[in-house]
Structure formats: structure tokens, C-alpha cells
Write a protein that binds this DNA or RNA. Structure first.
Length: 298
DNA sequence: TTTAAGTGCTCGCTACGTAC
DNA sequence: GTACGTAGCGAGCACTTAAA
């Protein structure tokens, strides 16, 4: 071990390099992650090897295999870097004085549910903070959070990468909505006999929660209309035989001329979540925003 | 043979020492 | 305090080496 207590003699950037290498297990991808060139990353690894007195990684066909010493460093290194990021980001965030802008992504349903209570609070407590809201599919939101284009994304998520953090904001039931004259079906057979409106933001949401529940029962519904807007869907029902199965808050209060009732088969509650990248754990401002969202939607 | 890491060389930047 | 010269370091290009 060549490290001494003389921190001035150590390039602390090398710790960031080591973290990237441990994360990617691949020199070229680690270089792209920082970003720097592959040779620069190779030189940095060489300096790390001298600094730590260990090969750290063995070359393999698919990239780099960490040594036991490198693996032992992984968790403490991540903790140290998180502390440094917190230190540099400023441990204290003052919402009343902040002039920051946060970039969020959510569906129109998410905006309808989350933004009103959030903005009421923010306009009082943090009038200098701006929000930039965009719309994307679930996979687009995950990609945006991962590459730093988004601070936070709100939706219903399936699998997410390991470096994406997530927190459930609320659970919600599904209900059926239809033209009041047509009524809401009380049996599964009547439900399946009707044409349906499907709300899905993108191709990655083809297997939505409702279809998954039907599939578990061995059934499928006929989707007559597919659209990406939750809040526009109820207005399409009036004067038709179309049936819409949506999260309860989408039709609360019940629009005039519509009937709303429970679905005639069990559907797992929808978990509405927010996601952010692990690098933002140290961001006191974003932590504050997450806390406000959690409080507003609890 | 393909893919990815390692190496040699060069260039540019920065820190440091020195002179004024 | 400022200007200048110098050494050292890091990054990138081009190429080589190693693993599968």
C-alpha cells in the first residue's frame, strides 16, 4: 500500500476513476462514463495500481475482472464519494432563497395528480424555484434520469437499472368508466364484450396493468382506441359503448354523463412512483423536492 | 479473428521557483 | 505583485498486445 496520510500527494480524481471502473467492469465504458478517452482511463488505472499497490483488475475477454482488493474497496469508496458530493453540493438547501430549476417528467395523469398540491406548497415556501415538466414513455423517463437530462420522473415503473433509486408516492385502485346510459359492466363476460380505450404512453407500456390482470385470468380485451393521454380519455366515452379502465383519480370527480364503478375482476393496485439517479442522493435540493412530493401525495 | 486493454510518444496545461 | 522559465503530469493519437 503506497498511500500515505499526505492527501496533497494523491489525485483524488483517481477515486472517481476507480468508482467508474468498479461500476462498469469495462475500461472503455468507464472512460465514456466520465467522460475521457480509453488511453487516458488506462493511464489512470496504471496510476491507481501504483497508488494502491494492487493490480485492481485482471483483463478478460469481456472487459475487466476486479481483484479481491478492488472489491473490498467498492463499498467504502462509494460512501466516501457520496460524502464528498454532499460536501460540495452544500449540506443545507434553503428553498425560500433558492433560484433553482428542476427538470421533471410525468404523464398528464401524473401532472394532474402531483402538481396541484406540490405547486400550492412550492409557491408559498419556494417561490424562486422553477419546474420544467416534460412528457416521456416509461423507458424514456428512465433513460432521461440515467443520463442526467431529468432530475426526477414520476410514473408507474416496472424493472429499473440498479443505479436508479425509486420511492412509492401512493397506491391507487383501478375503476371502470363508461357512458352513463351504457353503464359499467358488473360481470367479466360483459366487460370483455365491450370495446375498450387503452391509455399507454409508448410501446413499452403495451402490457399495461389491466391487460396483465386479464392475462392472468386467461382473457384479453379488444382495444378499439389506443391513446397516450390519461386525462383526455374520459371525454371520449360520452355517447359511445367504449369502456375505460383507469386509475381512480383520473375520474375523480366523476365527469358529467359518465358512470364509474369497480372493475369486475381483481387488478393489483397501481404503485405510482418517483425515480432519480443514485448520483443525486447527495443533492440536498432534490432531496427537498422529493420530500415535498412525498408529503403532497401522502 | 475479433475485441478490448496496454504502451510509446507528443502536446498542452499547470504548478512552482526565480528574478525584478 | 507580476512576469517568465521550467519541470512534471495528464490526455490523446496511433499502434501493439493479449484474451477468448
Amino acid at each position: 500500500m503506497h498511500i500515505t496520510n499526505n492527501l496533497r500527494a494523491i489525485d483524488l480524481n483517481l477515486l472517481v476513476v476507480l468508482d467508474a471502473l468498479l461500476h462498469e467492469r469495462h475500461l472503455t465504458r468507464a472512460a465514456a462514463r466520465l467522460p475521457m478517452s480509453q488511453p487516458a482511463m488506462s493511464h489512470a488505472l496504471a496510476r491507481l495500481r501504483v497508488l494502491l499497490g494492487d493490480p485492481l483488475f485482471h483483463r478478460t475477454r469481456g472487459g475487466l475482472r476486479p481483484t479481491a482488493h478492488a472489491l473490498a474497496l467498492e463499498a467504502p469508496l462509494r460512501d466516501v464519494l457520496a460524502q464528498v458530493r454532499r460536501l460540495l453540493a452544500g449540506a443545507v438547501f434553503e428553498p425560500a432563497a433558492s433560484r433553482r430549476a428542476f427538470r421533471l417528467a410525468m404523464s398528464d395523469y401524473g401532472a394532474r395528480v402531483a402538481l396541484p398540491p406540490l405547486l400550492r406548497h412550492m409557491r408559498r415556501e419556494a417561490p424562486g424555484i422553477d419546474l420544467e415538466i416534460s412528457y416521456a414513455s416509461r423507458s424514456g423517463m428512465i433513460a432521461g434520469v440515467a443520463d442526467g437530462q431529468l432530475d426526477l420522473a414520476l410514473s408507474v415503473f416496472g424493472e429499473t437499472p440498479a443505479d436508479i433509486r425509486r420511492a412509492v408516492l401512493f397506491l391507487e385502485d383501478f375503476v371502470c368508466a363508461a357512458d352513463a346510459a351504457q353503464g359499467v359492466p358488473s360481470t367479466l363476460q360483459a366487460y370483455l364484450a365491450r370495446p375498450h380505450v387503452l391509455v399507454a404512453a409508448g410501446p413499452d407500456q403495451r402490457a399495461a396493468e389491466v391487460d396483465a390482470a386479464l392475462a392472468r385470468l386467461g382473457h384479453a380485451r379488444r382495444v378499439a382506441v389506443r391513446l397516450p393521454h390519461w386525462t383526455a380519455a374520459p371525454a371520449m366515452l360520452a355517447g359511445t359503448d367504449l369502456l375505460l379502465t383507469v386509475a381512480r383519480r383520473t375520474v375523480d370527480p366523476v365527469p358529467p354523463g359518465l358512470a364509474v364503478g369497480a372493475a369486475p375482476f381483481p387488478i393489483a393496485p397501481l404503485a405510482f412512483e418517483m425515480i432519480w439517479h443514485e448520483r443525486a442522493d447527495a443533492d440536498a435540493g432534490l432531496a427537498w423536492l422529493r420530500a415535498q412530493l412525498g408529503a403532497a401525495l401522502a
